[in-house]
Design a protein around this nucleic acid. Structure first.
Lengths: 215, 215
DNA sequence: GTAGAAGCGGAGGGAACACCTCCGCTTCTG
DNA sequence: CAGAAGCGGAGGTGTTCCCTCCGCTTCTAC
């Protein structure tokens, strides 16, 4: 955010640096509202600069996405690691799911970098997410907090599910997803009642499936 | 499907009638795979006819959508009414949710006519769906089968949620949504554990929100 | 103050993709 | 077998992207 150079070389002129900041800020807003497919013309308009200015600073769309989301990825992975370290595994799991959803609800850009493989952020996130969730689920099951037939690979789909309901109901009530989170948590909690359809799908297969859906 | 006239007037020539059938069938397939935004060129190609032939028979995209989905809407509303009449309200509710999801999982076209207001099918469906679900929930709560803090307006979001997970995990395992259905059903079942975020949103508001999401 | 480097805006090129029209040619039917 | 009906698909029109180019403006170092 506060980098005052372009590629670590010559510092930018003051007005250029100011515009760069505006562009990143506008991109964040626009991607949050319309997803990563939003047009760069839209970003430039929101930033109040010409499209040429945007492209001089960020030669490709991907460069802009990096500038906007690299920091967010670090925040998310830190958060995930922190929750994994929670002494109470159930509390950690709930906090992890809640935090991820809170970030995603209301920010379609974040949602998409977490679920679409297109731009490489997903890999970095899942490298932290997968072991964290596996450890939490194992510990929570050992403590009798989570039903025995739930696995670590179920949490990804649970997040997708709640994220979808958050998106769908946002216009009616932006916090309504919390209601369905509570419902689903009650479903995950021990002891289960309904028998579960078997889940023989790996994290890797799930990631691939999720990021390829709704093309 | 077996209509052998265009607007109830002169019957079509045999080859034209044959092509009309192929077009409707191809449209069903293409919309199922790619959603209602799929292009009519794609439909024509799949049907093995020229784009001109398609447009002569269906002057607008909407006419084709009607030909494809009007019957589906009737089937859905019949199904919904039938489940509402189930003596065991819990069994009826589960069957209703399962049937809707079964139809939607694997058919993006059906999913979209059920959730997007664009083409007017949603209204016809919800005219049956809303009273059916309200009656089932009321009866199921009276029988102690559903937790007291769940309402009729929760079932729509639940379907959206499971439909999203079905879509996301389809490539990994097309039946995996059943696993999360069981999880959610356990969450809906009486007695609840986690307190639910209040739901002060009407069916109408929810429909509007859902059909306007992911524009 | 000023020269010139740095930066700026936005028209527009090029590509992709959608819906739909038109018309010369083909096929069916009475 | 005549002529009505139907056919195909090139192409018109429109939209929406990403990105380039270049004449003009603004900043900054001296």
């Amino acid at each position: 955010m506060t980098s005052d150079t372009e590629h670590g070389n010559r510092p930018l002129r003051a007005d250029a640096e100011r515009n760069r900041g505006r562009i990143v800020e506008a991109a964040r807003e626009v991607f949050a509202a319309h997803g990563l497919a939003a047009s760069l013309d839209d970003v430039a308009r929101t930033a109040g600069v010409g499209i040429g200015t945007l492209y001089r600073r960020f030669p490709t769309k991907e460069a802009l996405l990096s500038a906007v989301f690299d920091q967010v990825v670090v925040e998310i992975t830190d958060e995930v690691d922190r929750h994994a370290a929670n002494q109470d595994p159930w509390a950690g799991l709930v906090a992890l799911i809640t935090d991820v959803l809170q970030r995603q609800s209301g920010d379609r850009g974040v949602f998409e970098i977490c679920t679409k493989a297109d731009f490489g952020h997903l890999e970095r996130i899942s490298a932290h997410y997968v072991p964290a969730v596996e450890a939490l689920i194992t510990r929570a099951k050992a403590a009798g907090q989570v039903r025995a037939d739930v696995t670590g690979t179920d949490i990804g789909p649970v997040i997708v599910m709640l994220s979808a309901v958050g998106d769908a109901t946002r216009a009616a009530d932006p916090q309504l997803w919390r209601r369905y989170l509570a419902l689903v948590l009650d479903g995950i909690r021990a002891p289960g009642v309904s028998p579960l359809h078997p889940n023989r799908v790996s994290h890797t297969e799930l990631m691939a499936a999720i990021s390829s859906s709704r093309v």
